[in-house]
Structure formats: C-alpha cells, structure tokens
Design a protein around this nucleic acid. Sequence first.
DNA 1: TTGACATACTGTATGACGCATACTATAATA
DNA 2: TATTATAGTATGCGTCATACAGTATGTCAA
Lengths: 123, 123
Amino acid sequence: MGENETTLGALASELRRGTLVLSVLSQLEERRYGYSLVQRLAERGLDVDQSTLYPLLRRLEERQLLDSDWSLEESRPRRYYVLSAAGRQLLADLTKEWDRMVEVQERLLGRSPTGSGTKEEKE
Amino acid sequence: MGENETTLGALASELRRGTLVLSVLSQLEERRYGYSLVQRLAERGLDVDQSTLYPLLRRLEERQLLDSDWSLEESRPRRYYVLSAAGRQLLADLTKEWDRMVEVQERLLGRSPTGSGTKEEKE
DNA sequence: TTGACATACTGTATGACGCATACTATAATA
DNA sequence: TATTATAGTATGCGTCATACAGTATGTCAA
C-alpha cells in the first residue's frame, strides 16, 4: 500500500480526463469567465485547476467551439466565453457519446439496467 | 462541416480514454487472453484496437495489477491475463470513482436524478 | 497615504503519460 | 496461397498536471 493510492489517483485522473471537455461545454451555454467556471464546477463536485482550465478554453476557442470577448466594464477585466453554434452542436453530440459510453460501461460492470437488451443475449 | 466530424471523433476518443482501464479490469476477473478480450469488449459495444490493448495489458501487468502466464497446451500459444489482488482492489476503487464521476457529470448536464440533493440547493 | 498582504483573475512553459496509428511477425486453417 | 487468430513494437500527437508569472482590486493597519 502507498503505491496503490498513487496509482489510483493517476487512474482516477485519467478517468476524468476525457470528460473535462464535456463538463466545460455543458456550463457554457451561458456566458462565463474562467475563474467563475472553476468555482461553478467545484460547486458541482468537479475540481479543476485554473492552469488546466485556461489552456483548455484556448483550445476550444481555437477550434471555434467557443466565442470569447473581453469585458472591461466590470471591476476587473474578464474574458467571457460562450458556446458557438458549432459548440452547441458538439455539446449535443458529445452528450450522446457520453450516454452511449455510460451504457456500455455499466454493461461491462455487470449492471444491466432492467435488462432492456438492445440485442438478444448470447453465450 | 467535415471538420466537425473529425473533432467529434477525437473528442469522443478522449471521452472513452480514461475508461479503458476500468473496462479492461472489469473483464479480467476471469482469466482471458488479449485477442479474446478484444472480441468480448466489442460484443459489449466497446471497440478497442489490438495495438491499443496489448500495450495496456503490459502496463497493467508492470504495475502488478494483472498476472499473466503463457498457455501452450492449446492450439496456439496464448498469454492469459487475470486480476491480481491489487487489481481486484483497484477495480473496486475505480468503480467507485466511476460512479462518482457519473453523478457529477449528470449533474453538470442538468439531469438531477430524482433530486436526492446531497446538500441544499443554493443560487 | 503609504505600505503590506490577500484575493480575483488571466495567462505561459514544461514534462509525463496514454492512446491511436502503422507496422512486424508467426501459427493454424481453409 | 490467402485468411484468420494471436502477439507484439515504435512513434507521434494531444492532453492534463504542476509550477510559475503577472496584473488588478480590496482591505486593513500605521
């Protein structure tokens, strides 16, 4: 033991990894800035470091999934992000992928939800 | 459009990424060899390339989460893998992490399952 | 009003690691 | 001879985490 916790931590990290994009997109139907996003995600149980989030926002904007603009009217300058049209589409698509993935994983974990088999069972 | 599909593919890939380990561990409570694992996962809806799986099995064995042995008695030599004690423990832990993650993600997607709030709702 | 310090807020650089893709190789079987 | 079963390696790219830098605002004390 001791090593194990490190391994678990790393793998749990990996687990969350791919979902980060979906998590972020899901919160950007409304205009928000980075710092507030971090807090909002934390409130809902997802701890993301700022230095993880900011590059991610940049990447998403590069791919034109987000639009951003500086807001200078407030106390401090803040860069606001919001889903673009493509971003909304991707959010929808990724959500479907998420659902599919959860279904598969639950099946793999041996939890067949009310046995609504998509196909007949064999073997 | 056109670009979008590529982006979706890549991100869907990322989505599945971290779950690979959990998926594989979940099927190795019983002794299996690589090729059969690929098929079993595919049957259950998860397509994994062989050249993704084999290195993964190696990594897991390095970390002593799996035990392996060659079976030479059969038609062709096959290397069988099975969970070690540490692997079983990790499977349990990762499953918990998975459940936690699903809960968080569902919350982020705005699907509160029967509103069993862990805390009071605010804002 | 100055200074000190905390906090809000945005950002960059680097390293480690995992997956995907492409590829090689061999034994059985048709 | 070709196809399938089976195992493996090498390489590149992208992502995250960690560490770090930097600016603006607010606050409290002296």
